[in-house]
Design a binder for these strands. Sequence first.
DNA 1: CATGAATGAGCCTTCATTCAT
DNA 2: TATGAATGAAGGCTCATTCAT
Lengths: 238, 238, 238, 238
Amino acid sequence: MFTPDEHGFTGGSVTGSPGRAQDADQAARVVRAEWRTRQLLSAAARLMERDGFHGVSMQALADEASVSVGLIYRYFGSKEDVLLAVIVEVLNAFDATVPAAVEAAGADPVERIAAAFRAYCGVINTHRHAAVLTYRESKTLGTRHRDTIKSLEVQTTAPLRAAIRDGVEAGLLTADVDVELFALDLILLAHAWALKHWYFGATLSFETYVTRQTALALRAVVDPAHRDDYRHLLAPRT
Amino acid sequence: MFTPDEHGFTGGSVTGSPGRAQDADQAARVVRAEWRTRQLLSAAARLMERDGFHGVSMQALADEASVSVGLIYRYFGSKEDVLLAVIVEVLNAFDATVPAAVEAAGADPVERIAAAFRAYCGVINTHRHAAVLTYRESKTLGTRHRDTIKSLEVQTTAPLRAAIRDGVEAGLLTADVDVELFALDLILLAHAWALKHWYFGATLSFETYVTRQTALALRAVVDPAHRDDYRHLLAPRT
Amino acid sequence: MFTPDEHGFTGGSVTGSPGRAQDADQAARVVRAEWRTRQLLSAAARLMERDGFHGVSMQALADEASVSVGLIYRYFGSKEDVLLAVIVEVLNAFDATVPAAVEAAGADPVERIAAAFRAYCGVINTHRHAAVLTYRESKTLGTRHRDTIKSLEVQTTAPLRAAIRDGVEAGLLTADVDVELFALDLILLAHAWALKHWYFGATLSFETYVTRQTALALRAVVDPAHRDDYRHLLAPRT
Amino acid sequence: MFTPDEHGFTGGSVTGSPGRAQDADQAARVVRAEWRTRQLLSAAARLMERDGFHGVSMQALADEASVSVGLIYRYFGSKEDVLLAVIVEVLNAFDATVPAAVEAAGADPVERIAAAFRAYCGVINTHRHAAVLTYRESKTLGTRHRDTIKSLEVQTTAPLRAAIRDGVEAGLLTADVDVELFALDLILLAHAWALKHWYFGATLSFETYVTRQTALALRAVVDPAHRDDYRHLLAPRT
DNA sequence: CATGAATGAGCCTTCATTCAT
DNA sequence: TATGAATGAAGGCTCATTCAT
């Protein structure tokens, strides 16, 4: 699990109050701090998805979150940090969701690939607001932040790449599949769901989208010899 | 072919001079104007791809193009107009390239699909700078401009969609292919080449990328009965 | 009394603090805000009278008022709004001064006319800087603002017109007096005091100016039969 | 007659063409130059009256006059010079009109005053566009130009002041009339005709305005003993 | 004489960030 | 902790003026 440098609440000793009461205070403080953070990130994601990073002023963000401008700076060092945190939140959600989904799919590599893809799409669907930001505003961030994201993305897509590799090695996928490339394509298709409103209209439901894309993608790589085993994935009724 | 309202050089023909000489003047002026436009758009694409629309100031643009700020406004009404023009230039390039490439590929729908995809990728490779902008900065533009782009994109992808539809109807592609979805996916894969430096590193050559993606995509849709006919596309040696 | 929409300090009362303390805060804030406004308007009037609306940059205004440029925009939405506020201030001063002066002059219509005129001149003398702006920069403002001013001016000159009308009806002024025209002329003569430095030099004192103009104007309209009653106005010793 | 420093067409010897032909050339040139000047000043007056000095760009002026921007600078040294020339044109018109009108009115001082006033109003009515500029944009001009205007105005109002002085000395006006002040008032009333559209609406015709103002003003100063002699001026039927 | 492309200083305005309360 | 007044750098854009043709 990744935790950005959200201003490092070390919560050091303050002044001179007894221990027990202080602990309670601290706990309450932490709770409130987390609530604030969530409140702010949620507002930021909503606003930035709609108006873009540069289209959202700190004042607007403060208004949307019903706090003062100054308070934002207690939780984030700069406007860029807010953006980074929003993006990181999505990437963390991948890490919190995808591995579990893959595990739940059982041992079969092809099933795991399908599960991973579906989980990716699910996270993107949930954080649709923020997901677009990853694409649109990465260049906005400085190199350091960008590297943070980059490595998070690699880490995040690891389960998918692993499943694909397993599939090839198990002979379930054709031997000539380029693991990296296929993984990239699946990620792209997942992201496309977030971009699709603007690019595509609202013709497909989420379910249909995932099912069809899964079928399309897998048909390209499943070894002909095992096609029948995955008919439920390759030729869905929808 | 689309031409944005680049400020409509009506040019005020005035009093009473011959006409031949004036025509020459006008012609020379138009030539220079077009040169300036190209010069500016090229600089804009380079800079905006690197720093994003908001990261490029008009001053910076002027410097990069070695002109004064004021002059930019003779050719574009606003900063947004510059962005629009950059984007439109790519889209026009599609229109100028793809249909010809498709025709040159002969009558076979599958060959035409492959040719269209390759052509798309080629245009994106050429205008790599500008292509990224289409993704990143569309939200930046006002609704009117956005609609302009949207309709251009639809128009631009028409040849590809047509070829796919033909393929399905000719029984070369499996009957259950979702034309729109498959077209979208191919476009995405083409665009991905522009996004890949940031997303992927520089492992693949353009040739390899196109060949492999073509194979991957087509394998998902070509009817098993015709696989052998397209072995050169489906199972390239690279 | 007119109050322009000076940015409507709604002020965001937030969480849950007592109220008394907050009220005090709010009150203090309002006081400071009003002080700022006055400070800014005063600087604006001074500068604009000297250099004209277009001759004063926001930077210059900020410097003169010893604040930052940005702060001006907390109090006024735009440069035009500053001009409007300056002008409105004068017009409000009329409303706050003239009626009282007229009342204090007693019931006699002629005395009331003289008192109104003197009061007008007094306000203009006090706000000499700003008064000139009304003439010079009305065209600068947009139609909406211009209408605001126009209706304020009408409202502001009402007491004078009423007194003249009463005078005519009471038979103190000759029956053929054109009420509107005579009122306009008096207003003009009052404004002329503000324009006179540039137009006239500094030969006359305020007192002398008012007294003489009153005499001159009234002599044109007071009915010969009542001349003697107003000798103190018609033939002053100065 | 005043002639501003309109770039001093000394029209010196050019190169080496014969005398006669050159003279013709010169003449033609001068004619065209004057035509251009008039064309430009007319356009400038129209535009500036509508949009104010600062609201008119040199480009707009060029367009309105159907010439190029560059050409304007052959006739006027700067934008300010254009404004000055426009204003000076009105003041010259006074000089060209008022004295003649005064002479034509005969020897009677009161008649001369009335004639002068009517002539002033007439000029202002004709150059209404430009007249407003005198008020609105004098501050725009530098000190030097402003002094030019000031002295022109003094020179221009001389006939009126002379007539008033004569009237007082002849005992036709009451002895206590302040010559300078009364002259100023009359000039103001004349100018008011130009300002009135904005200040007053369009209720009065020019004729009515002049007649009524003349009556009003003269009634204030004509000696009671001579009232009957000027009944046609003091109590017009309109 | 005439044109209009080109320049660049300067203007209004916004907004991230700070800090006294 | 929380507020929001205050700052000032920077940005987009305009426009008077020049100059090569």
